[in-house]
């Protein structure tokens, strides 16, 4: 079986600062992986590099996605090929209507796949169904993208975009941060609804909290730009109990 995402010995820098330092990771179809680690360990960098953010320079290593060299693709091409990044800090874009962006995104992907554009009726029906699953008011469709949204509303909006775009690989960067318990449950419900054998999900998170609601197949601990330890879901519980220092000490021992 070929992996959906295969990262080998990845080194990156931003400006003159090295961030990822020999990171390797393999994610298979149907799997849910959690990337955990302390602040500054490179978790968000990993998410951004996969999505194609141009401020990160890959100095060596490879990233292969469905057999393709991902690093050659522009961010929009990656998105159309089925990669979705859920942002830690979703951007507010006043003046761009939420429904307009959702529809443009869905259609960009459909055109790429040689499918006809979605018609207005079908789009609204689909969007309303997805919003109801996430406990979102349909009124959000007519607002500016994330404009004046609360932290929880922004994260729900990210999951709504994911649900509409139906990615093959979703990277969710700290989707749980800043959420109260109700929002966390709603977001987890949305993510779980998208679990499927032909989709992979990578959860980047600081805390184990989200993993109580979304059970990962694999858990990785990232520190100083590389993966120090991997395990099953019990690793997350152990981390919660013993802290990140435990992994770092174990690794340097």
């Amino acid at each position: 079986m070929t992996a959906m995402l295969e990262i080998r010995d990845l080194h990156t820098k931003i400006g003159d600062t090295a961030i990822l330092d020999g990171l390797s990771l393999t994610v298979g179809s149907g799997e849910v992986h959690a990337i955990m680690g302390p602040n500054g360990s490179g978790k968000s960098t990993l998410a951004q590099v996969i999505a194609g953010h141009e401020s990160h320079v890959v100095t060596s290593g490879t990233v292969t996605y469905c057999g393709k060299n991902l690093l050659e693709l522009a961010p929009e091409e990656r998105a159309r090929e089925g990669i979705f990044l859920g942002f830690q800090y979703p951007v507010e874009i006043p003046g761009v209507n939420n429904a307009y962006l959702l529809k443009a995104a869905v259609n960009a992907k459909r055109r790429h796949n040689g499918q006809p554009e979605i018609d207005a009726f079908e789009f609204l029906k689909l969007a309303r169904a997805r919003m109801s699953l996430l406990g979102m008011d349909p009124g959000f469709l007519n607002r500016g993208v994330n404009e004046g949204f609360s932290g929880g509303e922004k994260k729900r909006n990210e999951i709504l975009q994911m649900a509409m775009l139906e990615p093959r690989l979703a990277i969710l960067d700290e989707t749980d941060s800043g959420l109260d318990i109700d929002a966390l449950k709603a977001v987890a419900k949305g993510i779980n609804a998208l679990r499927s054998p032909d989709r992979a999900i990578v959860l980047v998170t600081h805390y184990q909290r989200l993993l109580q609601y979304i059970e990962p197949d694999r858990v990785h601990v990232l520190s100083k730009g590389r993966i120090l330890r991997s395990g099953d879901k019990s690793l997350a519980l152990e981390l919660e109990e013993r802290g990140y220092d435990w992994v770092r000490e174990a690794a340097s021992a």
């Binding site: 990656r78 998105a79 979703p90 874009i93 761009v96 962006l101 443009a104 960009a108 992907k109 790429h112």
Partner: peptide
């Protein structure tokens, strides 16, 4: 953000300029 949703760079610039 817009490009990560599949919107190409030119269209994203246009969208933001219109906004």
């Amino acid at each position: 953000y817009l490009r990560s949703r599949g919107i190409d760079a030119d269209a994203a610039s246009r969208m933001l300029t219109r906004a």
